[in-house]
Simulated assay, not measured.
Amino acid sequence: MEHNKIIKLNDKNFKKNVLMTKCLILVDFWAEWCSPCKILMPILEDLLKEYKHKIKIGKVNVEKNVLLTKKYFIKSIPTLMLFKNGIVKETKIGFISKNQLKDLLNNYI
């Protein structure tokens, strides 16, 4: 799994890329039609550059990955979940700013 690009997560690769990794990974649950999700995308790309080698970022399309959507009780998007050592450390529902995301990440780095 690479640190320099956002990972497309799905029902099949989630366990390997998120649950079985020790690093800090921010998972964005999103959908194509979600405007706040689209606004969040460039922010996530910026964070990946700023926090190079410290975090990984993955995206789960909720419409294409129903098992994950149900498993993590995703009712509203975007939903951001921060995992470390395969465990959910924090969950943020709805759009949050870049500074709020940086504050969240800095608590775990």
Rank of each mutant, 00 (worst) to 15 (best):
K54R: 14
K89Q: 15
K54E: 10
L80R: 09
H53F: 11
M1N: 04
I77N: 12
L26P: 04
K16L: 02
K16V: 00
K15E: 15
F73D: 15
Y72C: 11
S76R: 13
K71M: 13
Y51N: 01
L101S: 00
D11V: 08
I57G: 00
A31E: 13
I43D: 02
G58S: 02
K16S: 02
N10V: 02
L101Y: 03
C37M: 01
I6S: 02
N61R: 09
N85W: 09
K22A: 05
D103G: 03
P78V: 12
Y51G: 05
L101F: 02
M41Q: 13
P78T: 12
K98V: 01
L67G: 12
L80Y: 08
K49Q: 12
I55S: 06
E32F: 11
H3L: 05
K15D: 14
K12N: 14
V62I: 15
C37V: 09
K75H: 11
N107Q: 14
V18F: 01
K38S: 06
T79D: 08
K52M: 10
K54L: 05
I77L: 04
V18S: 02
H3A: 06
P78R: 10
F95H: 06
Y108V: 07
N61M: 06
K98Q: 15
Q100G: 06
V66Y: 08
G86V: 04
D28H: 10
I74F: 12
N10A: 07
M1A: 10
C34A: 03
N106S: 02
L24Y: 00
H3M: 09
L105S: 01
V27F: 07
K75A: 11
P42I: 04
I6A: 03
N99A: 09
K84P: 03
K38R: 15
I6R: 04
K98H: 13
L19H: 01
K5C: 01
E50I: 08
K22W: 01
K75R: 14
Y51S: 04
I74E: 11
L26M: 05
K92Q: 11
I109E: 11
D103H: 08
K75E: 14
N85H: 14
E2I: 03
I55G: 03
K12V: 11
L44M: 02
K49F: 06
I87R: 14
S76K: 14
A31S: 13
I87G: 05
K8T: 13
D103P: 00
I109W: 01
T21D: 00
K52S: 14
L9M: 08
M41H: 08
V62R: 08
K56R: 15
L24W: 00
L19N: 10
T69S: 12
K64E: 15
C34L: 04
L9Q: 09
P36Y: 08
T79A: 13
H53N: 14
D11Q: 07
K15I: 08
T91M: 12
K49R: 12
K71F: 08
E63T: 11
